[in-house]
C-alpha cells in the first residue's frame, strides 16, 4: 500500500514539473459568492471527471472510502486557502489532469486501498483542485463564502457518486465490472485531456 501511495506521490510530483495549465474561468450564478463557489467546479471537466472518479473509487470500498468524505473537503479548503496565501504557483492545473489518470487507473485496477490511502489520495486531490478553484476568485469575491461553496460542491459530488455506486454494486455483482470499465474510460479521458494540454 505504501508503495502505491509512493508511486502516486511520484506522479503528482512529476505533474508539478509541467507548466501550469490552470485555466481559471469566472462563473456567476448571481446568487452570491457561496453559490458561485458551488457552481464553479461543476462547469469544468477538469474537476468533474476526477471528482466522479474519486466517488467511484469510494463506491468500490465504502468502509475505507468514507474517510475521503472528510479528507477531500478538508483538502479543498486547504487548497483554496493556499491560493489566497500564495497565488500563481505552477503545476496544479497539470496535476489535476494527472489526477484523472491516477484515479481512473485506481478504479480500473480495483486495488484494495486502505482508509489511510483513501485519506491521503483524497486530501492531495482536494488541495490541488481547491487551489485551481481558488484562482477563479475575482478581486471582489468573498473567499469566506466562495471557498465553502467549493467545499460543499466537492462533498456533495463525491458523496452522491459514491453512494450511487455502492448502492448499485451491492445489488448487482456485474455492476462492479461496469465500475472498473468506467475507470478505464476515465483513464482514457485523462490521457486525452493531458495530451491536449501538453501538446
Amino acid at each position: 500500500m505504501t508503495r502505491h501511495i509512493g508511486r502516486l506521490a511520484g506522479v503528482f510530483a512529476c505533474a508539478l514539473l509541467f507548466p501550469g495549465t490552470a485555466q481559471a474561468h469566472l462563473v456567476s450564478t448571481r446568487f452570491g459568492d457561496f453559490y458561485d463557489g458551488m457552481l464553479h467546479p461543476v462547469t469544468s471537466l477538469e474537476h468533474i471527471v476526477p471528482w466522479l472518479a474519486l466517488g467511484l473509487l469510494m463506491a468500490a470500498r465504502p468502509q475505507a472510502g468514507r474517510w475521503a468524505l472528510l479528507a477531500f473537503p478538508a483538502g479543498l479548503a486547504i487548497g483554496v486557502t493556499l491560493d489566497a496565501a500564495m497565488p500563481a504557483l505552477p503545476g496544479f492545473g497539470t496535476a489535476n489532469l494527472v489526477s484523472i489518470l491516477v484515479l481512473g487507473g485506481l478504479v480500473a485496477l480495483d486495488l484494495p486501498l486502505s482508509a489511510a490511502a483513501f485519506a491521503v489520495i483524497a486530501c492531495a486531490l482536494g488541495i490541488s483542485h481547491g487551489y485551481v478553484n481558488g484562482t477563479a476568485m475575482a478581486a471582489t469575491t468573498n473567499p469566506v463564502l466562495f471557498a465553502p461553496g467549493v467545499v460543499m460542491a466537492g462533498y456533495l459530488m463525491i458523496l452522491l457518486t459514491a453512494a450511487a455506486g455502492a448502492f448499485v454494486t451491492r445489488r448487482w455483482s456485474a455492476a462492479r465490472i461496469a465500475l472498473r470499465a468506467l475507470g478505464s474510460w476515465i483513464f482514457a479521458i485523462g490521457v486525452m485531456m493531458l495530451g491536449t494540454a501538453l501538446a
Binding site: P62, Q63, L156, L159, F167
Partner: peptide, 15 residues
C-alpha cells in the same frame, strides 16, 4: 431534495 439525498448518501456509505 439535496438534504434527503445527503441523508440517503450517508446511510448508504454507513457514515
Amino acid at each position: 431534495a439535496v438534504v434527503l439525498a445527503v441523508q440517503w448518501g450517508h446511510r448508504t456509505m454507513m457514515v
